[in-house]
């Protein structure tokens, strides 16, 4: 299999990049005080967590589509 068709095949992974939109754009799912973590209300630590997770996700997609 040549380089460019291999790259095309791996493009399916790009769909993973939709995940950050789904998990952040519906605040009804995370807009609560409880459960807290180290004093942080859920609303805050959930969004901090997704900063890290979406960065890892982007790096993962970068590596598998290279």
């Amino acid at each position: 299999m040549n380089e460019s068709s291999k790259r095309k095949r791996n493009r399916g992974w790009l769909w993973l990049l939709l995940v950050p939109y789904i998990v952040t754009l519906f605040p009804q799912f995370y807009s609560t005080y409880q459960p807290t973590l180290w004093g942080f209300p859920f609303f805050y630590w959930y969004q901090f967590l997704w900063v890290i997770l979406s960065a890892l996700l982007t790096w993962f997609v970068y590596v598998v589509t290279k």
Partner: peptide, 8 residues
């Protein structure tokens, strides 16, 4: 969230 979803 703004600066999360910008990067994908």
């Amino acid at each position: 969230p703004y600066t999360i979803i910008i990067y994908p």
